[in-house]
Design a binder for these strands. Structure first.
Lengths: 231, 231
DNA sequence: ACTGCTATTATTGTCGACAATCTAGCCCGT
DNA sequence: ACGGGCTAGATTGTCGACAATAATAGCAGT
């Protein structure tokens, strides 16, 4: 489900710690900026510090923790500037996945995408479309396109290296009224472009779609930074 | 020189191993696909396996080694398909850096880029422009633009995570006659676009520039795979 | 000779302890 | 009272040894 090719059945301790720590961070159990003390965490997961350090290193490569030599690891805490940078990265990567997907997506994948968007529409209409599920679904749409781009490196960079980071910083900003409908429409247009095998248009629409989300963030953070300077 | 902000003066053992192993891989001292046995490497670098495993994990995040659980690490060995995927990733990332750099680059950085290209021209003319130096210079141009994009995440993804991998797989393909001149011209056009603050054009030119290199690779690998099937 | 199993070996995964470094609180001098 | 240096505690970095898993070589049987 998560990885590309059939993952090895054997699961090492560091693997388990990695997933547990990841959920702990994303669910907010470990707050952004919080110090991650190796002895504490080792006790918490019932292992020694060896596998734990291993897991921390992998979390670092997924940008969920930042480490400074001799000073340990902290949960990542993105500034508004860094969050915008993340969206600028997404815009580039996902634009390319859309372009490539238009050339390479299969009929079956097109059908699955269509059904996915139908589900989203229903969710939004009966207002079960509350944040949590909708967000997951939104990312699901984006990641299926990444998979359809048939570029494992692009897929990994997006869906492995930055997936949890996006999840972590998504909650706070995508709750403007009317946005779900708008986003769904944008998704449908992108799907149309894919079906037409129009890579150029698919990229254009995908980039604009992400840029829209980025703008919302930029506004929000501008407001909050104003509040800071005012208070 | 390598990192963005002033790197901490303290250098841990894992850091030293990381750089040494990186050069060993890029210089070809460790061949692609070669098994990396932890006890051997630990002896080679005169440390224990702890810091070595640490370094291996970081090399994994830079995609220079691939690790499978309980089976150890190997030096990366890209297939033609994966190499093309790398260039598709570069096209997306560097196109975006060019676009952003057009908005954000300083006059001083513009001047430095111009001087760099002048140096390249001289190198090419007196045919000191043999592969090694030219490649370094080429990457230098690309990375200065990444820096000028003022997006630390984009810069790191390109210049930290994928730099050595690009170095490793660059030697083999960029030696077509006349290509240096052509590439220099393309670089100058990109610089023009940056100076004009024309982000859209800068992105277009950068993407085409990288796509050209990718096509050369696709041809070469097609030829070699033909040879394989013929033999 | 070849296939399949078994035992040995080697390599990776994990652990606890020691050394080096950083952090925090205290004491002292001005 | 305030600041600087010093000591004590805690935390990270490193090491060597043990356990678990995988790879290999040898052997037996067909």
């Amino acid at each position: 489900m998560t990885d590309s090719v059939a993952a090895a059945a054997t699961t090492t301790l560091a693997d388990r710690i990695l997933t547990d720590l990841t959920t702990a961070i994303v669910e907010g159990d470990l707050a952004p900026g919080e110090k991650l003390r190796e002895p504490d965490l080792a006790r918490r997961f019932g292992t020694s510090r060896g596998p734990l350090r291993d897991a921390l290193r992998r979390l670092e490569s997924r940008r969920l923790v930042v480490t400074t030599p001799n000073a340990g690891a902290r949960v990542v805490s993105l500034s508004a500037e860094q969050l915008i940078a993340l969206y600028e990265l997404r815009e580039a990567l996902e634009g390319q996945t859309a372009r490539l997907a238009a050339e390479r997506i299969s009929e079956q994948e097109l059908g699955e995408l269509e059904r996915l968007l139908d589900t989203h529409e229903q969710e939004i209409e009966r207002r079960h479309g509350r944040e949590y599920f909708r967000q997951q679904g939104d990312l699901d749409f984006h990641f299926r396109i990444a998979r359809a781009s048939a570029n494992a490196l692009l897929y990994d960079t997006l869906c492995v290296d930055h997936y949890q980071l996006m999840r972590l910083y998504r909650t706070k900003f995508s709750n403007r009224v009317g946005r779900p409908h708008r986003a769904l429409t944008e998704h449908r247009r992108i799907l149309d472009a894919l079906r037409d095998r129009d890579g150029e248009l698919a990229e254009f629409l995908m980039r604009r779609h992400i840029r829209t989300a980025r703008s919302a963030i930029a506004e929000t953070s501008a407001v909050s930074s104003n509040k800071e300077t005012t208070s």
